[in-house]
Measured scan of single mutants.
Amino acid sequence: MSGNGNAAATAEENSPKMRVIRVGTRKSQLARIQTDSVVATLKASYPGLQFEIIAMSTTGDKILDTALSKIGEKSLFTKELEHALEKNEVDLVVHSLKDLPTVLPPGFTIGAICKRENPHDAVVFHPKFVGKTLETLPEKSVVGTSSLRRAAQLQRKFPHLEFRSIRGNLNTRLRKLDEQQEFSAIILATAGLQRMGWHNRVGQILHPEECMYAVGQGALGVEVRAKDQDILDLVGVLHDPETLLRCIAERAFLRHLEGGCSVPVAVHTAMKDGQLYLTGGVWSLDGSDSIQETMQATIHVPAQHEDGPEDDPQLVGITARNIPRGPQLAAQNLGISLANLLLSKGAKNILDVARQLNDAH
């Protein structure tokens, strides 16, 4: 009898209710805020589980004197976190989706994509230029951005401005803007500013005609071990179906173009009346040469937790077992079709030249 009692006690200790789920994140304040929001949602869904947040620095956090596009290494903000995932030191990792490459290392998958916040870019102005827009900034004003995508589009749109690289986390960039006289304004992701509670610093939100956004911008991705079915089931509740389908289309477009950090590629997606609209573009580094096109596809946005595919093969690095396969494939095909259209119009040449120029500098 006593033996059975011990077995029952052991089973209770090993039951999922007692389990601590370890969540990996970057150390920056924004990353911690984003991770806290994901953990809060998981806690609400699984009140019996405990969650421990483990923060670590990544290569991208450490190399702050070089433009991201020049470092010449993929997975700048993800490699150390993936290493911890691989060694079973954490069970899942919360990322900004735009930091996750469209091809993940073997053994990993994006197990959830959370509801997207505003994906557009924002302009934050130096205190002396508050009330201005990019259009009304004085001639030769210097605007800071760490992104080739932003610089290429904005140089084309605002030729009277000069664009220079600015690195560091959000706090560091804002301090550089406010305390030094080098920059009249800087460009940042609206979602990051909003998550930090800095709505009052948003001086201008850039519309798609001015600057399309990065693939996955404004959404959070939760990376897990691809074979860890328990954790895949656990994080599945975080999937937002519309965000998922938009981001599958965007990531398929980028992957098929073979774009990345070192080339200016941008997108804009919208879901309306059962249609998914995808606009994508590529630019030369100075913005003088560009190709942009829009395509659409009829896609039914499923309700969360309709029964999805059981075999769960990944699409552009994403596993969404609780979302039907048909809409996911339709979104992926839309991204591939748009990429093929741009490639047929000469996108590869623009991107190759951009890559060579970026590598040469």
Rank of each mutant, 00 (worst) to 15 (best):
L315P: 09
A330R: 15
V267F: 14
N118L: 06
L92N: 12
P106W: 11
T102M: 08
A122S: 10
L238C: 04
I113R: 01
N333T: 01
L49R: 07
A112T: 09
G221I: 13
T58L: 05
L148V: 11
K348P: 03
V142S: 10
F77D: 03
L351C: 15
A339Y: 04
T145A: 14
S37Y: 05
K87H: 08
I205Q: 15
R149S: 01
T78A: 07
S262W: 01
L278V: 06
I33S: 11
R32V: 09
Q180R: 13
G168Q: 01
G308F: 01
R26C: 01
A330V: 14
E73N: 07
E139V: 08
V215G: 14
Q304P: 06
A320M: 05
A67T: 14
D286H: 09
F253D: 01
L341W: 08
I113L: 13
Q332S: 15
V38H: 03
T35D: 01
A354N: 01
I291V: 07
V237S: 11
P313S: 14
K79W: 11
D230I: 15
P106C: 14
A55Y: 11
N349V: 10
P106Y: 06
D307L: 01
I33A: 14
L278A: 05
V90K: 01
T25V: 06
G281C: 10
E139G: 10
R321F: 14
G280V: 07
Q180P: 09
I110P: 01
P47F: 08
L49S: 11
D311P: 09
G111Q: 01
L81S: 03
A214N: 06
P302C: 11
D307R: 05
K70P: 08
T25N: 06
V224A: 07
L285N: 15
V143L: 11
S165V: 09
F158N: 12
A189G: 09
A151Y: 09
N333Y: 05
L238E: 03
I53T: 07
P302F: 04
D228E: 15
H120A: 05
L49G: 12
P119W: 10
G72C: 06
V90Q: 05
L137G: 03
T319F: 11
G60A: 04
G274Y: 01
L161K: 09
T190Q: 15
S69T: 09
F253L: 09
D230E: 13
S37D: 05
L68F: 06
H300S: 08
W198H: 11
D233C: 11
E310H: 15
F51T: 13
L134V: 09
G144E: 05
A151I: 05
Q181G: 11
R22L: 14
R173L: 03
Q292V: 07
L329M: 15
E306D: 07
K140W: 14
S288I: 14
K62P: 01
G287R: 07
A303K: 14
I323R: 07
H305E: 15
K227Q: 09
L220S: 06
E179G: 08
T25I: 05
D99Y: 01
H126W: 05
L100K: 01
L278D: 01
E306W: 11
I54F: 12
L134W: 06
D289A: 13
E80A: 11
G24W: 01
T298Y: 10
D307Y: 10
T59K: 08
L244M: 09
I110G: 01
A347V: 03
F253C: 01
T102C: 04
A347S: 12
S28G: 11
D91P: 05
A270W: 07
E210V: 11
L68E: 07
T133C: 12
A55V: 12
S262G: 15
A40S: 09
A112G: 07
A112N: 01
I291K: 13
D311I: 04
I113A: 09
N169P: 01
C247T: 06
D233I: 09
R167A: 10
G111I: 01
G168L: 04
M212R: 01
H300V: 14
I54M: 09
T279Y: 12
R149P: 01
A252H: 01
E250T: 03
D289N: 06
S344T: 13
G197A: 04
A266K: 08
L76D: 12
R325N: 05
P159E: 08
I231T: 07
H83A: 12
K87N: 12
E117H: 11
E82K: 06
L97F: 10
A44I: 09
V267D: 01
L220E: 01
F253V: 05
G197T: 04
T78F: 01
A151Q: 14
I71F: 11
V38F: 05
L85F: 04
H207T: 13
N358Y: 14
S284L: 01
V90R: 01
V93E: 01
V23M: 12
A214T: 08
S37I: 12
L338K: 06
S141K: 08
C247Q: 01
Y277F: 14
K348S: 14
R116C: 07
I336C: 01
Q292F: 09
I54K: 11
P47L: 06
T294H: 15
L42E: 03
S146A: 09
A354S: 04
K27F: 12
L343W: 15
T109L: 05
E135I: 11
D178M: 11
Q275A: 01
L244V: 09
V23P: 01
K70I: 13
L161F: 07
P106K: 14
T136Q: 10
L148A: 01
A40H: 08
